[in-house]
Design a protein around this nucleic acid. Structure first.
Lengths: 335, 335
DNA sequence: TTGAAAGCGATACCAA
DNA sequence: TTGGTATCGCTTTCAA
């Protein structure tokens, strides 16, 4: 293995000088820098991460906690993971992957054994059992989502409450008098994953304000459950003319079930989807969407982590404003 | 921070003894073990990963390289990531996430700086530029997929060639005289991602053997591209009675386009999907599938890595036999 | 069955 | 602007 001493010897300088060339923590003459950098390249030197961590108490690693349930949300989670990893590399950090099932102990372990400098946590629940521990942990933490008692923790998320309102207002402006919400799966509500509740709140409030008749139902991810969900929505409100779908996984089933009911989109029913923009074109009718900007959120989360690591920032909550893009799937109601 | 010395002092033993209790590398009296373990718990001791890596030249970390394209394959990739991470933890290892765009240099960096003990690489191409470097790297490597010149590297994958054949034979046995393959996106073929070619080969060979008229087309993931793909397949073979879809992302579009053509599944057209079993129930008709056992592959990949790390194993290629589960979407052809 | 101590490869302080 | 060196926390050899 090539060590800093090898480089130092080759360049005819002290090991500490090599270290300083690498870290930029003190000024180096042009000539010395050249010599050192050349030796580094020639020898193919890479600093030993463990040694570095030991000496500096910095790992240059971010731990990212992802949900394990692979049946739902996958596209969003994946996009987010990709964004975080890419952004982390731009800041010269790597990403250690943890799964939610490791729980609070897993986080304690990773921090305790100095495997990571900071934590990014996805799929946070309203009363997330990990929150107290995260607060106790004296490390930068950024949550994707907004749990209830997170004062002291940084949070990033789409403003789902505003999104719910934006969805309703778009439909109201088109002239709809009613709207049904096809929500995330019941499990999501049961776990108290806050984005579902926040969207629902925005949805109902805006509906009340606009005088819309609104109904909402969670929706499991199988075709049968989707059909049942629509059955209920239509039973409650037979003259429904618009659906808001906050569940990417069932977009296909929703659209095909509507067709089987003899309902055309958007002529008979408008459909507004809450999902990444990239999914808008994957259906027979291009979808009006409120985008879930997973990569923006990921990048922002990393940026916030970095400034906390730099000591320049204190915890804060950032909610991104919803953006609606109108496409083919929404139109004025029939008649 | 709690160190091994703190634990040793609390337990009244030498630091080395604590180390041996932890590693099990020499026998310890019951009493000493009890004392040490108690101190560890009481103090909440976690060994410092960096220090450990420095002293032992082992990181207990596996690097996992994932593809970045988030539009395709996401479900499979995600399932795989989850499986690897979970399996790694069972073997007392963590997972460092790399993206494919880091390329060969990224791998060199990670190994060079001793960030990981072994590499798991997804999305390998036939003539993957990373292969030579992986061979040069003197570390355990397991590839998900099978590149061309990988002698010396371990590979795990579904036996896609056999899968192609199994698909055709199932349809032939049902009495079909023709079959169309809706393949992965053109980009996948262009990159020479080997699973696509292998499936295609098995598909064509088995079709020739069984006397089936077979056509195949790549398929982009948008609705428009899917419809175009089906257009071509039907143009080439107007009396097509069966489709094999090796592209989970377009299953929805394929099914709804068939309906728009007035074709019922399975009465008029049989559909056989190559995808994770968990997706079989997400459509109006439950799908006959050849499963992509992402979690099995992930677990196996980790197991192989571990035995290589243990020095018990030499590189080998393992192709999992395809498993077909018949559901509603395949049936004898009309008439 | 246990202890003492020499590294592992960096960083960063103290000097020059 | 540079060098020397103690130090980080652990593993493992050598001795007892």
């Amino acid at each position: 293995m090539v060590t800093i001493n090898d480089v130092a010897r080759a360049a005819g300088v002290a090991p500490s000088t090599v270290s300083y060339v690498l870290s930029g923590k003190r000024s180096i003459s042009a000539e010395t820098r050249r010599l050192v950098e050349q030796s580094i390249r020639r020898l193919g030197y890479h600093p030993h991460a463990g040694a570095r961590a030991l000496a500096s108490s910095k790992t240059q690693v971010l731990a990212l906690v992802i949900p394990l349930r692979t049946d739902l949300n996958v596209a969003v989670v994946m996009q987010f993971v990709a964004a975080v990893t890419t952004a982390a590399r731009r800041h010269d950090h790597d990403v250690l992957l943890l799964t939610k099932d490791e729980g609070a102990d897993g986080l304690k372990r990773v921090v305790g054994s100095a495997l990571a400098d900071a934590l990014l946590v996805m799929d946070v629940e309203s009363a997330d059992p990990r929150v107290p521990m995260l607060l106790a942990l004296d490390r930068p933490v950024v949550l994707i989502g907004t749990p209830d008692h997170a004062t002291g923790l940084s949070c990033v998320d789409l403003d789902f409450q505003a999104a719910g309102a934006v969805a309703v207002r778009h439909l109201a402006e088109l002239g709809h008098a009613s709207a049904g919400l096809v929500g995330p799966s019941p499990a999501v509500y049961e776990r108290g994953t806050s984005f579902a509740d926040r969207f629902l709140r925005g949805f109902h409030q805006a509906a009340a304000d606009a005088g819309l008749r609104a109904g909402a139902r969670p929706c499991g991810h199988s075709y049968e459950q989707t059909r049942a969900c629509l059955d209920e929505l239509f039973a409650e409100n037979p003259d429904l003319t618009a659906l808001v779908v906050q569940n990417e996984a069932v977009l296909g089933p929703v659209l095909s079930d509507l067709r089987q009911r003899g309902l055309r989109v958007p002529e008979d029913v408008s459909v507004l989807a809450v999902c990444p923009d990239s999914m808008a074109g994957n259906h027979a009718v291009t979808l009006t969407t409120i985008t879930i900007p997973a990569d923006e959120i990921g990048e922002l989360a990393v940026a916030m982590t970095m400034s906390q690591l730099g000591g320049e920032a204190t915890p804060e909550t950032r909610l991104l404003s919803p953006r609606l893009t109108r496409r083919e799937s929404t139109a004025p109601p029939p008649r």
